[in-house]
Structures are given as structure tokens and as C-alpha cells.
Design a protein around this nucleic acid. Structure first.
Length: 619
DNA sequence: AGGCTCGGCCAC
DNA sequence: AAACGTGGCCGAGCCT
């Protein structure tokens, strides 16, 4: 038995590392002593990609506030399995989905059995303060949280190890986890410390959450997380042949346009300096700046010079600049390949499935995020990337999305009579707005003028949800500031309650804590210099919580086995071909609800055998 | 070489 | 008076 000690918040705590079967008796005593307690759990693995080749769990750690047990998986797998299987036992981990899926993947504990008995200190921390360190919050990592809630001197559990990876193993942050000697003292120490910190975090955050009346929300979030983690475990199938072909096509496109750019002296299309120089050399003049004040050569600038609109069709307003055209096309092809298509291929498991990492509670507003690969942000104006994701054998992909959910939430919360009428009317919201603003003039307008007005007020509505103003609207849409100002003023006059609601939120924050409290009871801190974001925070967060609640409802109805991915206001899933339509509509019925008297409606659509079919792809 | 910020770009 | 929200992730370029 190796025994290390460490100081945590002034206490000397032991870290035990059993080497023989006989050493395990102390571990059993530890478990008996903590029979009625929630015990902290953590794993050390070979790398971050749970579903990648050669993934392994090397250590399993168990701990209380007073001690840690670091158990080798290669020697004591049976004991770990038996320990985790104990039905009455409750556990806590920091970022539980990772450890749950890791032990599930290697057969140490089935997700369905361990998942419901696992608490997550990440969830509690997010409810206490959702901000990252860079935003003035505590941060949501184990280390920064421990420094705030447990011990200001808390060791960074990773930084020291990275130094060892580099100096002793010539390895990186990524590769060192698989290479470091399993009994390296620093590895054991850090493995053990993590569970002690986690146990103490649970104690501190538990008191805080209970004291602030957030226990119900915490329970809800654990339910939601279980459902999204189950989706991650299920994953989605990749059409490998199609995606390989797509990667090849994108590579050819990229090369073709890079060659054009090179003819004009742009050797590297990703170099903003080269692109700027080339365009200036051709006599182009523009004034759009980046955040740091440099001339911007982003998509908006380049598309304009290439005489293309946002749908990449010709404006016929000027001669297209061939460099701008080539650069913007080469960059798009490269982005689509590396971030999406190639990522599908690189991240797939042995069964050609990808398992995107789903954070059920991510943004300050509690919005979810998806990464590895980032499936919430695949191009939607073109079906080519989404075509690479296919339904399981005999299944059809469907989607149910809330219609205008943020506008319905803002209508309910502000109580603005016109907005309430608008969402109740069932009429297209932007047309309704345009009509309301135009008054009697609407009847005299041509269809083209009506469409233009609708588009304008669609932009205004989006801007309002984001807390934007006339200047932003002008920038987004290309109209003059005066036109934009007139439109936003008209909007405010049409829906005075929305503006008043924003002011009310800010006033309350000004004289209380700098936060908004959402209808679901979530406390969202505001930045003092961006108080105008208050409305957006409440609306975005409430819309997220409506979707999260829908996930729980679907789970309660036994429908969650067919869910694939949450996308903010949409749930993607699959169902057997024969009853996909019926299934999607059942999902729609469960998702639909009433929020403070306002009907929250959803639309169901059956796509077909691949995701792209919802976006124009053939079967 | 790895880590970091910035500019850029994809989504809702 | 005005105020454009939330993410993931890539390559370039700079720093250590």
C-alpha cells in the first residue's frame, strides 16, 4: 500500500493506493464507514475521447471529505465493478457525464444503473453562479471551484501533471494521460485530491443550493443531464462513404479557389494580412473594422466585394472581385471539411457512430452546448454536411421544433397586448408586425413592398431579442442608420410593453443584486456594463428551460430512447420507418405546452434516412 | 512545440 | 442615449 498525505483547507488528508488484494480491506472499511454518505467518484483515463480507439480507464478514485482511495483498474476491476454496482449507494462526480460514460464504455458500470445514482457538482456550481472566470464568476472547473469553496490554496490538479508529461514523457497535455507511469506519485496524488475536493465541494455547494431554494432546480438538472448523456451514449451514425466523398469534393474546391487566390498573390487565404494587402492593392476601399480596430476581411466584407448576397447569389451591383470571391469560397470549403465532414470521420467509433459531447447546462443562460463535433452549428443553408448523418437501420430521422418560442416567451413575460395578440393570432409574426406598424398604408402596398417590410421587421424582432438597437440593425441589414432608427422606433411604439419589461428588469437589478431571476427560478448575473442584456438572458434562458422540461416530459412518456440531439429550440430524433410520422407527432404533443397563458406550439417534420433530407437532400 | 489570443465563421 | 444575446472551433501569429 502506498499512502500519501496532503493538506486540504488545513486538514491533513490521506490518499491510499492499494497494491495487493490484502490492501483492499482498508478500502472496504472506508466504504462501510461511509455507507450512508454520498461518496465522491472520479476516473483517470487514457485520453479524452471516450469512444475513440484504445480508450481505457486506468484509475478509479473514491473519496470523502477526509480521505481518498485511488484504485488501479488493471488489478482491481472486479472490486470497482462490485463497488459501483451496490444499489443503495449514491455518488458524486464533477462533470459526471464524462466518468459515467467512461466506466460504461469499458464495462465497469452500466450507464443505466449508475447514472441515476450520481450527483454532479458541476450542476450545483452552475446554479450557484453560471459565469466563467473570465466573466467574473467562480468558473466551473474543479480547480477554480475548489479554490473558492474549499481551499484557496487548492492544487491545480492538471497543471503540474502537464509539466511532468512534457519533461518526463516528452508528451503533451493530450497524450500524457496514457503514458504516465500508473504509480507516478504525482499522478496518484492528483487523482486522489480530485475526489477529496469533489466531496468537499458537494458539502459546501449543497448547503448553498439548499439555502437559496434551488434544490428542485438541481434535481431537474440532474434529470435533464441524464437524458442528454444517454443521447451522447447512443450517438449518431455516419455515412462514411458519403462523407469521405464529400471531404474529397471540398478539398478539390478548396484547392481550386486557393489557386485563384495565389495567382493574385494571396499564398494563404487564412492570413488576414495577405488578404487585406491584396484587396488594397487592387484598389478596394472599405471601412468595416474588427474588435481591435483593424480592417476586417470577414465574410460580410468579402461577399460584398464578390458581388454576392448572403445566399451566395449575384447582386449584379458591381464587378465581382475575383480575390474576394476565391478567398471566401476557399475558406468555406476548408471550414466545412475540417470542422464538420472530416470531424465526423475522425471522431467516429468502431461502429461508425459519433458521440457528440452534450453539455446540458452550459451557457450563462443555461443553454446547452454540443461539441466534438459541434452538431448544433452545422450549415443549414445547404444539405451537404448534414447528409453525412444517417438514421439507424430501419429508422427515419424526424425533427420537432418550437415555433417562435422566444417571441412567445417575451410576449408572456412582458404582457404586451399587441405581442400577445400577435402570437395568439397564429399569423406569421413578422407580417403581423409589419401590418401593425404600417397601419392603413399596408393595404396600399405591393407584394414586393410587403415582403420587404416583413424582412425588415424580422430583423428588428431579432435585434430586440438580443438587446440590439438601430446601429446594429443598420450594420446587420445594410440599411441606413436613419431607416433603422425609424424601424426600431416604430417597433417600440407597436410593442411598448417589451421595452417597459426590459427597463423593469434593469431597474430591479440596479437596486438589488445585479441579476435577473427567471420564471424557472434560475439566478442569472448581469454585467454592469451590459445591463441591456437582461431581457435576452431571461428570454433565452426560459426558452432553454422549456426545451429541457420537454426532454424530461418525453422521458416520462417513455419516448426518450429515440432522441438524438437537442438544438436549442428543436429536438432531433429517429423512429422506425413505419410509424415515424406518428412518433414525431407524439413528440410534438408532449413538447407543446402553455407558458403563462401563452400557447407554446411546435412543428413536427419527418426527414428521411439522413439528416440532410430536412434541408433539401435527396433520399 | 505548446499555449494563448485574435479574427473569423458555423448555429439558434 | 444607446446598447446585438449564447455557444464551438479553426488557423494565424505571437509568446514562453
Amino acid at each position: 500500500m502506498i499512502r500519501l498525505t496532503h493538506r486540504v483547507a488545513g486538514d491533513e488528508v490521506p490518499i491510499f493506493y492499494p497494491e495487493t488484494d490484502a490492501d483492499l480491506s482498508g478500502f472496504r472499511d472506508f466504504l462501510d464507514r461511509n455507507a450512508g454518505q454520498v461518496v465522491a467518484f472520479d476516473t483517470e483515463t487514457t485520453g479524452l475521447h471516450i469512444y475513440g480507439a484504445a480508450f481505457g480507464v486506468r484509475l478509479a478514485q473514491f473519496g470523502s471529505c477526509e480521505e481518498a482511495w485511488v484504485i488501479r483498474v488493471d488489478r482491481f476491476a472486479a472490486t470497482i465493478r462490485e463497488t459501483l454496482a451496490h444499489p443503495g449507494r449514491q455518488w458524486v462526480a464533477h462533470n459526471a457525464p464524462y466518468d459515467l460514460l467512461a466506466v460504461d464504455r469499458v464495462g465497469l458500470a452500466p450507464f443505466a444503473e449508475l447514472g441515476p445514482r450520481m450527483f454532479d457538482t458541476y450542476i450545483l456550481a452552475h446554479l450557484a453562479d453560471p459565469r466563467m472566470e473570465s466573466e467574473g464568476g467562480t468558473g466551473l472547473g474543479l480547480k477554480p471551484l475548489s479554490a473558492v469553496y474549499v481551499d484557496p490554496e487548492a492544487e491545480d490538479t492538471a497543471k503540474g501533471l502537464y509539466a511532468v508529461f512534457r519533461s518526463e514523457y516528452k508528451a503533451t497535455k493530450e497524450t500524457g494521460w496514457a503514458l504516465i507511469d500508473i504509480d507516478h506519485p504525482l499522478y496518484i496524488r492528483y487523482a486522489g485530491l480530485d475526489v477529496i475536493y469533489t466531496a468537499r465541494l458537494l458539502r459546501e455547494l449543497g448547503i448553498l443550493i439548499k439555502g437559496n431554494g434551488l434544490s428542485k432546480l438541481a434535481h431537474f438538472e440532474h434529470r435533464v443531464q441524464l437524458i442528454t448523456t444517454s443521447m451522447q451514449r447512443r450517438g449518431m451514425r455516419v455515412d462514411v462513404d458519403y462523407t469521405r466523398q464529400l471531404v474529397a469534393e471540398l478539398a478539390a474546391e478548396e484547392q481550386q479557389y486557393k489557386a485563384v487566390a495565389a495567382r493574385f498573390g494571396v499564398e494563404n487565404v487564412n492570413s488576414t494580412r495577405q488578404v487585406t494587402a491584396a484587396l488594397q492593392g487592387m484598389g478596394e476601399q472599405w471601412s468595416t473594422k474588427t474588435a481591435t480596430g483593424n480592417l476586417s476581411v470577414g465574410k460580410d466584407v468579402l461577399l460584398g466585394m464578390a458581388d454576392l448576397d448572403h445566399q451566395w447569389t449575384r447582386n449584379n451591383r458591381r464587378d465581382p472581385n475575383l480575390v474576394a470571391d476565391a478567398v471566401v469560397r476557399a475558406k468555406r470549403a476548408s471550414k466545412w471539411s475540417t470542422s464538420y465532414a472530416q470531424a465526423f470521420l475522425d471522431r467516429r467509433d468502431d461502429d461508425d457512430r459519433i458521440h457528440p459531447s452534450i453539455k446540458s447546462l452550459a451557457a450563462r443562460t443555461a443553454r446547452m452546448s454540443v461539441s466534438d463535433p459541434p452538431l448544433q452549428q452545422l450549415p443549414s443553408g445547404d444539405w451537404k454536411i448534414r447528409r453525412g448523418i444517417i438514421a439507424d437501420e430501419g429508422m427515419t430521422i424526424w425533427s420537432v421544433d418550437y415555433s417562435q418560442v422566444e417571441m412567445k416567451v417575451i410576449a408572456a413575460l412582458s404582457g404586451d397586448p399587441n405581442m400577445l395578440r400577435a402570437v395568439a393570432s397564429g399569423e406569421d409574426l413578422h407580417t403581423f408586425t409589419a401590418k401593425l406598424v404600417m397601419g392603413p398604408r399596408w393595404a396600399t402596398m405591393t407584394d414586393t413592398e410587403k415582403a420587404k417590410a416583413r424582412k425588415l421587421f424580422k430583423g428588428v424582432g431579432f435585434g430586440k431579442v438580443y438587446g440590439g438597437g438601430a446601429a446594429g440593425l443598420a450594420r446587420q441589414t445594410g440599411i441606413t442608420y436613419e431607416e433603422a432608427k425609424a424601424a426600431t422606433d416604430a417597433y417600440d411604439a407597436a410593442f411598448p410593453g417589451i421595452k417597459a419589461y426590459g427597463r423593469r428588469l434593469q431597474r430591479q437589478a440596479q437596486f438589488g443584486k445585479f441579476e435577473v431571476v427567471t420564471p424557472f427560478g434560475r439566478h442569472l448575473p448581469l454585467d454592469r456594463d451590459r445591463m441591456y442584456a437582461a431581457t435576452n438572458y431571461v428570454v433565452q434562458s426560459t426558452a432553454r428551460d422549456l426545451l429541457a422540461k420537454a426532454l424530461v416530459d418525453l422521458d416520462n412518456q417513455g419516448l426518450s430512447d429515440h432522441l438524438l440531439l437537442p438544438v436549442h429550440d428543436e429536438i432531433l430524433g429517429q423512429a422506425p420507418v413505419a410509424d415515424a410520422n406518428e412518433f414525431a407527432h407524439e413528440v410534438r404533443r408532449v413538447m407543446e405546452s402553455t407558458f403563462q397563458g401563452v400557447a407554446i406550439t411546435a412543428d413536427a417534420e419527418v426527414y428521411g434516412s439522413n439528416w440532410g433530407m430536412g434541408y433539401g437532400a435527396a433520399a
